[in-house]
Design a protein around this nucleic acid. Structure first.
Lengths: 188, 188
DNA sequence: TATACTAGAGAACGACCGTTCTCGGCGCAA
DNA sequence: TTGCGCCGAGAACGGTCGTTCTCTAGTATA
């Protein structure tokens, strides 16, 4: 039999993929069962309700996002480079083909009106991303407003890339980021 | 009895408000009936299915967005002023209190995976907004990449404002817009 | 081998939703 | 006044979903 940890992973990954592709409410627990290859009974011992599974999926997404960001920043030496690496990471993610926007933005739009938990998880993820950017902006010695400029560009790029279906928005956001970074460092 | 046109308006406005507040799938047709004060039978003669009502709501949202944009631009003489007026319009909308992001972005995140119609209506709205910005950028004599910078800032501001629940993101986006506009006009 | 336990497959259950139908009442034409 | 047609209220229907239950089969232990 599959170990508990493995089963949990299978379920979270299957649910993450299905929720992301079709929306959360459009995916029934039976579809998760079929995709994960884990029985309904098992799923319900791992996650007492669908809401708990949704929360686990969002936590999984957040971990993915954060490790992706750090991987992209790893090879950059300067804070400015790490800030621009955000857009390199976005570019590779958007290029994967099944890109459909930020999972937190989608979940927030679909469920924040009826699920305070989803709303809070989304808020937390955005706050954590903002703090990640803020720290880099401090290291770069730029004024703090740059933080919000870059966060807004990154979120806007994801929205437009999802709806337009191309990678152009990310490249454009990166160009705009270069402009506001240069401006914030007094290089213009 | 209520005239057909009036009933149609009542239904679309009620549905727009409920869909926006709670998400589309979370709102049943019976809730629309209660909010609009129009019988289910009547609703189904006006809109053959819920999908048709969703499409009507999105068209209504698009008209609202476009007239709001034009109202905000009306008092501005220069193209640059009209471009910045986008963020003034966003500011007043976000400040209304029940703001929960762009209805098209929310609908896209919730339904684009299962409804090509919703996906297309969202794409069309974003394309129209982009064209509105592009025309102003042409009039301003700036290079065309500015169009995408501003569109991305506007969308990002809406996402962050929705999740954070404040108006700051819009003000920050406006500041960033001023920087990229000045840059595009060679004023830096 | 016999037994007790466990897990999976899938049926079952209750709730809800989109959509249609029924029924009772109101207005209107002759 | 009488019949006719339209309307709203709400019941009804078929389907789906989240969640639980049943039944069967396999396994480990004594």
């Amino acid at each position: 039999m599959i170990s508990e940890g493995t089963a949990r992973n299978l379920v979270v990954r299957a649910a993450a993929s299905l929720f992301y592709a079709r929306g959360i409410q459009a995916v029934g627990m039976d579809a998760v069962r079929a995709e994960a290859g884990v029985s309904l009974k098992r799923i319900y011992t791992l996650f007492p309700s669908k809401s708990d599974l949704v929360a686990a999926v969002l936590n999984h997404r957040r971990a993915q996002w954060e490790s992706g960001l750090e991987d992209a920043a790893k090879n950059c030496r300067t804070p400015q480079g790490k800030l621009l690496a955000i857009f390199d990471f976005l570019r590779s993610w958007v290029s994967e083909g099944d890109f459909r926007g930020c999972a937190f933005v989608n979940a927030f739009g679909e469920l924040s009106g009826v699920s305070p938990d989803v709303a809070e998880l989304s808020r937390n993820q955005k706050a954590a991303f903002r703090e990640y950017v803020a720290e880099l902006v401090r290291e770069a010695g730029a004024f703090q407003a740059l933080t919000d400029y870059l966060v807004i560009l990154a979120e806007g790029a994801q929205v437009i890339a999802a709806i337009d279906g191309g990678v152009d928005a990310v490249d454009n956001a990166r160009s705009a980021a270069e402009i506001v970074i240069a401006n914030a460092l007094g290089e213009l």
